[in-house]
Simulated assay, not measured.
Amino acid sequence: MTTIQARRKLIVILLLCVALGGAVLRHLGAPGTTLRDVGTLLMLLWIPVIGNVIAWLITKVRRKLPTEAAPTTEFDVAQPFRPQVQVELTLRPAAVPAEDLPIAEGEHHCAFVIGNEGFSGKWRVPEGGSFYRGTPQMLEVEFLAPALALPKFAPGVVFRMLVGESFIGDGRVLQPIDAAGPSAA
């Protein structure tokens, strides 16, 4: 037991003793006397501790209950890239022209935002492809939770790209991609 846990346990025991003493004073005091009022006050000191004890018990019970599998918050690196929509994306130019370099090929993670809803996703710059800021590019996107995102990303829908706390690009959905390839929609 840590020092903090030992102190907390001591405080709970002391407050319990004070509350029991208050119950005895309340029992011995006649109605309307100061002795009875002091006993009631001493019993009320126990209320905050009871709340903490109940909260502690609830957390213990919840830990022992079986829980559903937590939703995944990151892409599985072992899985191949499986695009679900094709988009046209324009990244904003860098603030400093010397930093306005082409985007490296490979996968890039971000959030795609429509209105006030954001969806985690990743997009890929193909090998040998060049992606420059400020020019519209057609890219494929995979969502972390496609069941939630795909109904929102219909052809023609406009979105913004969020990386960290900054919106770095704008785009629009071109078409959904079937497992066999882009659809003819």
Rank of each mutant, 00 (worst) to 15 (best):
T3A: 10
I4D: 04
Q5M: 08
A6L: 09
A6W: 03
L10H: 14
I11G: 11
L15I: 08
L16M: 15
C17G: 04
V18S: 04
V18Y: 06
L20W: 10
G21F: 13
L25V: 08
G29N: 11
A30M: 06
A30G: 03
G32M: 01
L35E: 10
L35G: 05
D37P: 01
V38C: 09
V38K: 02
G39Q: 05
I47M: 08
V49Y: 04
N52R: 06
V53W: 04
A55V: 05
W56I: 01
W56Q: 13
R63N: 09
R63S: 08
P66W: 05
T67C: 00
P71S: 04
F75K: 01
D76E: 09
D76M: 12
V77T: 12
V77P: 06
V77M: 12
A78Y: 06
P80I: 10
P80S: 13
R82A: 07
P83W: 02
V85M: 09
Q86R: 15
V87A: 15
V87S: 05
V87C: 07
E88S: 06
T90D: 13
A94D: 06
P97V: 11
E99K: 02
D100Q: 03
D100G: 01
P102E: 07
I103K: 05
C110S: 12
C110G: 03
V113T: 10
V113E: 07
G115A: 12
G118D: 05
F119S: 03
S120I: 05
G121W: 02
V125H: 07
V125A: 12
P126E: 10
E127Y: 02
E127K: 07
G128Q: 09
F131G: 00
R133H: 11
T135E: 05
P136M: 08
P136D: 09
A145P: 01
P146V: 06
V158H: 15
F159M: 04
F159N: 02
R160T: 10
V163S: 13
V163K: 09
V163H: 06
E165Q: 14
E165T: 13
S166E: 12
G169H: 02
G169L: 00
R172V: 00
R172P: 00
V173E: 04
P176K: 09
D178K: 02
A180L: 09
